[in-house]
Design a protein around this nucleic acid. Structure first.
Length: 389
RNA sequence: GGGCUGAUACUCAAGCGGUCAACGAGGGCAGACUGUAAAUCUGCUGGCUAACGCCUACGAAGGUUCGAACCCUUCUCAGCCCA
């Protein structure tokens, strides 16, 4: 395929770029809010867009179960259904191989799921996953991969990595024949073993994808292993293609990955933690906070110090907020975050009012998305221009 | 005036002689969450202690017993019933 990715500027290993899809352009580094089952939980698509989301992520497995591919075909895909007009990336179902491992049976042909809803059998193969992603309406498809829990041993990691590579090739073939204008990303596997990771990356590069993801991390492995893998592998991936860290992470981790040259991210943390009453509040003006934190992130792995430069992690249900009439976050890009008080949000959570989930989700998503836009600004303003490379 | 039933920690509510500082639920306090089976899950919740442990406790006061939240007596309060 033609190269859809342009690097606009670099600062160290970090890049600011632009990825073109058939549904529009995505400026990187980018955070993709997760709409697993066709909804960013608690938020309307246009609210998510207003907060600065450029692209969102949905899940093949969940959407196959419901509303189902037949319905999606008739409804014009999930984007049409949920009123999202921008680019969409879909996960292949590979993550569910890990998260629903008790309900899966792995074969070379593919993964057999027993639906977590009704136990019915569903065979997901590299081919059927790509076809499903096509019907769902993905602009960026992910290969089907085999994700293992963190801490898997060498032998298992090797087998899963090799199988993922074989599946990658089958996904590519299907994409080329059925959906030639959609982008397809390969996924680097290999657990915490650098030599396996390296072989995975080399194998994928030989096949040639539109982008490369680093997968199988943030699944219970040692944090330091994860950072080590990203540092090593990001540097091995093609310079002129987007790199996607799947599933992570905390804000300070994303900053670190960006500093290592990763361009794309997704994570449930902002929305899930919001629903659980944990919100990210800016430490100071986002512009300053991100600039400082990113400077720190370039010199060390994710740390308390970076986190503290960026945000206050607040469990809003804590007693100390009961009388706190101050705004949730004066810098929030989500307007209600400026307008409503901490005492109110605490009350909403205690009273189990649905509005609380929504307010918190807006605040956290606003935080993540603003962090990314500030980050793009920092990198664009940074030293070495792409031309000089 | 007489009879019956009941009184357990913030609330509701188990327990009916030792294994009870006392099941469970709610409430309260705190924590976790990383390509979402998650509006979920975990821990704590009499006092003192980092912990072992010690102390005070099951309406009140006595009593029986090696030992009582549990048995007995009286009292207080509440509900129901009969005059």
């Amino acid at each position: 395929m033609a190269n859809e990715f342009a690097i606009l500027n670099q600062q160290g290993a970090a890049r600011a770029g632009a990825l073109t899809t058939i549904s529009g352009r995505v400026n990187t580094p980018v955070f993709m809010p997760i709409a697993t089952a066709g909804a960013v939980k608690g938020m309307l698509a246009e609210e998510v867009a207003d907060l600065g989301a450029q692209i969102i992520l949905s899940n093949t497995y969940h959407l196959i179960l419901r509303p189902g591919l037949e319905a999606l075909k008739k409804l014009g895909g999930i984007k049409n259904l949920m009123n999202w007009s921008g680019p969409l990336l879909t996960d292949s179902g590979g993550y569910q191989v890990y998260s629903l491992s008790k309900l899966t049976k792995l074969r070379e042909e593919g993964v057999e799921f027993s639906s977590h809803l009704d136990g019915s059998k569903l065979l997901l193969t590299p081919e059927s996953s790509i076809q499903a992603q096509g019907i769902i309406g993905a602009d960026i498809m992910m290969q089907l991969d085999q994700v293992l829990a963190g801490g898997a041993d060498y032998a298992d990691s090797k087998l899963a990595m090799e199988r993922s590579l074989r599946w990658a090739e089958r996904c590519l073939t299907t994409r080329d024949s059925d959906y030639p204008h959609r982008l397809l990303f390969g996924i680097v596997q290999g657990g915490s073993f650098l030599d396996l990771r390296e072989r995975s990356a080399e194998g994928l590069k030989l096949l040639g994808f539109d982008g490369y993801a680093i997968g199988g991390l943030s699944v219970g492995e040692e944090r330091a292993d994860c950072y080590r893998v990203v540092k090593k592998i990001a540097a091995l991936l093609p310079v002129d293609q987007p790199r996607y860290f799947m599933g992570g992470g905390m804000p300070e981790e994303i900053l670190y990955y960006v500093s290592q040259g990763v361009d794309m991210f997704d994570c449930v943390l902002p929305t899930r933690n919001a629903r659980h009453g944990q919100i990210f509040l800016w430490k100071e003006d986002p512009k300053e906070a991100v600039k400082k934190a990113f400077a720190l992130a370039q010199t060390e792995a994710p740390s308390e110090a970076v986190a503290e430069a960026l945000y206050n992690k607040v469990n809003i249900t804590n007693e100390c907020y009961i009388l706190d009439a101050s705004p949730l976050d004066q810098w929030s890009d989500y307007l209600p975050g400026q307008q409503y008080s901490r005492a109110y949000l605490r009350h909403l959570f205690r009273a189990e009012e649905l509005l609380g989930l929504r307010l918190a989700s807006g605040i956290n998503l606003g935080f993540y998305l603003r962090m990314m836009s500030e980050l793009r600004g920092v990198i664009m303003a940074g030293g070495n221009h792409a031309e000089s490379k």
